[in-house]
Design a protein around this nucleic acid. Structure first.
Lengths: 252, 252
DNA sequence: ACCAAGTAATGGTCTGACCAAGACCCCAAT
DNA sequence: ATTGGGGTCTTGGTCAGACCATTACTTGGT
């Protein structure tokens, strides 16, 4: 009998929608489908691939969830299914759910945030343009308004960190940074709303944000990275941890 | 007339599968659905939600693509649709496509790899257990075999970096690190296969790997991080860049 | 006690139909 | 010639209903 040491890998039982998926991915990987290109209409794909429309649609749904596609009804340009590029939407969604599932404990998320935002800030300090600086400054200044409601403060905070991530001009780093930041958005807002000494916390955050901005504007990569990392870690350590308890209630 | 400055955000035209998605996510975010739990059978969801089975299935496909679900046919335990946790599968897939779409230029990917693997190595040096060290050592030693085919060398290389990422005991960091490493797996293999002076490159990689291992084993966070970052950057800079040209052929 | 055939539950697939949004075409009214 | 409006076609979105394949449990015979 033949050599049995090589495990009898079970034949990957492919579902037809996975085959459709594979065909489309082929085109993408091979570079034949590029951002902006239109896919054939669903009904044509059905004929071309010899599968049901449901199978085609399930494959398209997957790609859409990954931010690779965008579908619109109707005729004419901008209709139909086109290759798009919205990686951070897909990333954000994915992280959000897995964080909720506690596959990713909050401490892990903070560590990841610290790592990513530190690196992003360093890139920003190195590469930021005048335009990029302005995008960082805008939410920074809006946050200085002491009467700003907490929810909008949180939004500006998000914008601030997003602007830094994008200033580094590295889409992958930025998208991951943004996705992780977005994934904790709700948690932060909850924490904000539970705070008694809101004004004290807010002014601390403002001060840290200003310092970060200055470091980036000055092109001081080391300081920018250190300040951001301390900002992220400190905030979660000192503020969020004391408050967030009931989130993700443990099983009975 | 009322204030018009607030943009007339178009009502988000929700498709029914998105509503189904939202309901399921609700349960997850609220913690009522946890890893290991089973969802009702598709047909029951259809009755409960008052939508077609196609809509339910499209929603489930999305969650499956994100690594949140796992479906199996048949009866009995382990069949049906259950909440699972396979974040890195979803992440890897997502990054792979977007890298292919050149939404993420290779330089950006290298930067991200350097950042993530540096952080992972630091965590590993700090937290690794004896068991974790062994998981790192195993692929390391297998790579020492000079007769190892390039493809398997690449697999071991992947295993080595994955083992380091997992030794830091931070699932999110590890999954992102793994996903990015996997996303360039094909690119690296292609580069390997084009090399003329393979043995020279291989021994350089071996040496760097051993040094990294030693630093982690010694608990030297600084050295571990620096070595890994240099390893990642140096490899792409010196090896891959010289060789990889035709990948992702430019549009005509 | 054990094995085999039967059966029920479940996801996977397909067909065919209709709906709704959007863009284009064509003709009538100005 | 221009413009307005309605018809129409394409396209994705949704649905209902049926059948298939896999899997585990049940039942009955040896």
């Amino acid at each position: 009998m033949a050599d049995m040491t090589a495990a009898w890998e079970p034949v990957p039982r492919s579902r037809t929608f996975e085959l459709v998926l594979a065909r489309i991915e082929e085109q993408i990987i091979a570079g034949r489908l590029r951002v902006g290109d239109r896919l054939p209409p669903e009904r044509e794909l059905v004929d071309m691939l010899g599968v049901s429309r449901a199978a085609v649609r399930e494959a398209l749904r997957v790609l859409e969830a990954q931010g690779v596609l965008r579908s619109r009804v109707g005729t004419g340009p901008s209709s139909g299914t086109v290759i798009a590029a919205m990686p951070d939407a897909g990333l954000t969604q994915l992280l959000r759910l897995h964080i909720a599932l506690a596959n990713f404990p909050m401490d892990d998320v903070v560590e990841a945030r610290a790592t990513l935002e530190r690196a992003s800030a360093r890139l920003a300090a190195e590469l930021v343009t005048e335009d990029g600086l302005e995008r960082i400054r805008d939410p920074l200044l809006r946050m200085d308004d002491a009467s700003l409601p907490r929810e909008q403060f949180n939004d500006c905070d998000t914008d601030f960190h997003v602007a830094i991530a994008e200033a580094g001009r590295n889409r992958l780093m930025a998208d991951m940074t943004i996705a992780v930041r977005n994934a904790v958005r709700h948690t932060l807002l909850t924490a904000f709303n539970k705070l008694d000494d809101w004004e004290k916390v807010a002014s601390r955050l403002r001060a840290e944000h200003h310092a970060i901005y200055e470091a980036i504007a000055a092109g001081d990569t080391q300081a920018a990275g250190d300040l951001v990392e301390a900002h992220v870690r400190g905030f979660h350590q000192d503020i969020v941890k004391k408050i967030t308890d009931g989130t993700n209630p443990p099983a009975p």
